[in-house]
């Protein structure tokens, strides 16, 4: 089982986490066409590469961001939402 480094609680087994999907820009609902909105709502990119993903440490209720290479399943780094610049 993988370990994931929660920015608050440190490395913990994957079992303790909930996956929240890729971090995606929400299109402006007032301006997006129906097609653009449907694309946002229903389509996900499986493209190989470094993904920014939402992860949630269930036991402590902590949402954070993990940068993960979805080809190698390697976690490059994790940080709290909005703390990317401070961390990187």
């Amino acid at each position: 089982m993988k370990t994931l480094n929660c920015p608050i609680n440190g490395p913990r087994p994957l079992q303790e986490f909930h996956f929240g999907g890729e971090v995606r820009e929400v299109p402006d609902p007032a301006r997006a066409t129906d097609a653009q909105w449907a694309d946002y709502v229903f389509n996900r990119s499986g493209e190989p590469g470094i993904k920014r993903e939402w992860w949630y440490h269930v036991a402590s209720g902590t949402w954070f961001i993990a940068e993960r290479n979805n080809q190698t399943d390697e976690i490059l780094r994790t940080y709290l939402y909005g703390a990317e610049a401070a961390d990187g």
């Binding site: 909930h18 929240g20 929400v26 939402w54 949630y56 269930v58 209720g61 949402w63 939402y81 909005g82």
Partner: peptide, 20 residues
């Protein structure tokens, strides 16, 4: 639901406190 509310508070950056 609580988990999603927590995420929305982060994304929207709203001044709101959630207690489960």
């Amino acid at each position: 639901f609580y988990r999603e509310l927590q995420r929305w508070t982060l994304i929207w950056g709203m001044d709101v406190t959630l207690i489960n």
